[in-house]
Structure formats: structure tokens, C-alpha cells
Design a protein around this nucleic acid. Structure first.
Lengths: 129, 129
DNA sequence: CGGCATCCTTTTGGATACTG
DNA sequence: CAGTATCCAAAAGGATGCCG
């Protein structure tokens, strides 16, 4: 049974209530660390410290928090491999795979339009002094 | 002249350097207020206080900062209408229109998969106690 | 009306130490 | 190796007052 009877009264298209669950979920997905974790995992399952090495500048705490959040939202899976010492594999869930295309589209846009954005920045900074 | 000769040595696909300009730009676009401003402006030019009323929970300072950032990046335009008292219209630039599809795709995903995400959350919270 | 400047609180995040 | 817990510094964000 999938119908959870959401109250969408706060989700009108042009009125973003702080309670709108879509807004909340979007907010949880659209931070830079989540995006980068997803992009790395798109290339296959990865272990905690390998992930940390790929995401230059992230602290262990932030990575841990990001992974917990993505795991809770069902975007990634966490598998403990019982070796000594223990190994932990993170991977995209089917749900995680389904969210990749929009992310890629946005990231692709930043690549294709970076020059225009930088030109706009120069223009703005010149006008503003 | 469009070739600005970027140094992309820090932009390897699976190594997100803190200096990678795509990463920085993605970070500036993917915050909740920017997303919501863009979505409102997709329906036509809007004035400052009208925008503020639509974005429930935003402070004047945050809205102002968000608009400045989007304007600087060339995503939106700012037009001062010389009336008394003054009116200020914000609108999407052509560049702003071009970034809407990826945003819509991601937001659409949150709508289509919210049930699955909430089920995952319940499952996680049950496991974690 | 559409802001900027200031102050102050709250949140975020890094460094460090410790555990299974 | 893969974390959690704690402490502390830095940044984000709200409230208020003032200005063109």
C-alpha cells in the first residue's frame, strides 16, 4: 500500500511552505557533499576511507553525517563486510540510481555554462566597483 | 572571446577538488532558497516583497543575499522601476531560463519518490530505534 | 518599497580523542 | 578501518534600526 495520504496543503506550486515535504527533501539532496558522494558512487561501491580521499576537504564527521542522511533516505546502502579489520561498503540503491539523471543534468549545466556565468560575474563586479 | 583557458586540473570526474569551479558553481545553485526563487520567477517577473511573501520563512537578509548571488551569476535580472516609492522587478535571464529544466527534473523527482523516501526513513528509524 | 549595517543567536563544521 | 563523542571556532541567519 503506497498511498500515505500526505497533507499537501503547504505545497502549492508557488508557495513554498517550510512544511512542504518536497521542499525538505530537495533541501536534503541539494547540498554539495551529497551530490559528490552520489557522483562517486555512480562508479561503483566504495569504502568509507576511499570516499573520504575522493572528496577533498571533507571532514570525517561531515562525511559520516552525509552518509547517514543518504542512507536514511534510502538513496544509498551500507554493507558491513565481516573481515578483520572491518570493511564497510557504500553503494547506490535503486532509488539512488534513479536520482542520478537530474543531478547529472544540473552538473552538466554548470559545465556548459560556466563561461557565461563567469562573464556575468565580471560584469557585475565591474558595475559594483 | 569565450575561451577563458580554465585550469581544470582540479576537476577530474571522480576527484572533487575544493577549487573546481564547477563544484563551486553547483554549490551556489543548489541551495533551497535559490531553487525556490527560480521556481517563483519561472512564472514571471516578481517584486522583492512579493517574492518574500511567497518564500515562507525567509528573512529579508537571506532573500537579499540570495538575489544578489543569482544576479551576480547572471541567472536573474534586477530592474528598478522609477516610481514613488521605488519598485524593483526581478526576472529570469536567458541563462536563468536555461537552468530551469535540470532544477525541475530534480524537484519532480522529489515529488515522484517521496513515498519511497519516507518508507526508507521509517525503516531506518525502526532499525536504529 | 527595497534595501544595507549592526548585533546577537543558532547552526555548522573542523580538530582531537577514544572505541569496537 | 570505521566510526562516535566532545569541544571549540567559524559561518549562517534572524531581529532591529536606519536610509534613499
Amino acid at each position: 500500500m503506497e498511498d500515505q495520504s500526505h497533507d499537501y496543503s503547504s505545497c502549492a506550486a508557488e508557495q513554498f511552505s517550510v512544511d512542504c515535504p518536497h521542499r525538505v527533501l530537495f533541501g536534503e539532496l541539494s547540498d554539495k557533499w551529497s551530490m559528490m558522494v552520489l557522483t562517486v558512487l555512480a562508479n561503483g561501491p566504495t569504502r568509507f576511507n576511499a570516499l573520504k580521499r575522493r572528496l577533498e576537504g571533507i571532514s570525517q564527521k561531515s562525511l559520516s553525517q552525509t552518509l547517514r542522511k543518504l542512507e536514511r533516505n534510502g538513496i544509498i546502502t551500507r554493507e558491513v563486510v565481516d573481515t578483520a579489520p572491518v570493511a564497510v561498503q557504500y553503494d547506490l540503491s535503486p532509488l539512488g540510481h534513479s536520482v542520478l539523471p537530474p543531478f547529472r543534468a544540473l552538473y552538466q549545466w554548470t559545465k556548459e555554462n560556466l563561461d557565461q556565468v563567469e562573464a556575468a560575474r565580471s560584469s557585475y563586479d565591474t558595475r559594483a566597483g
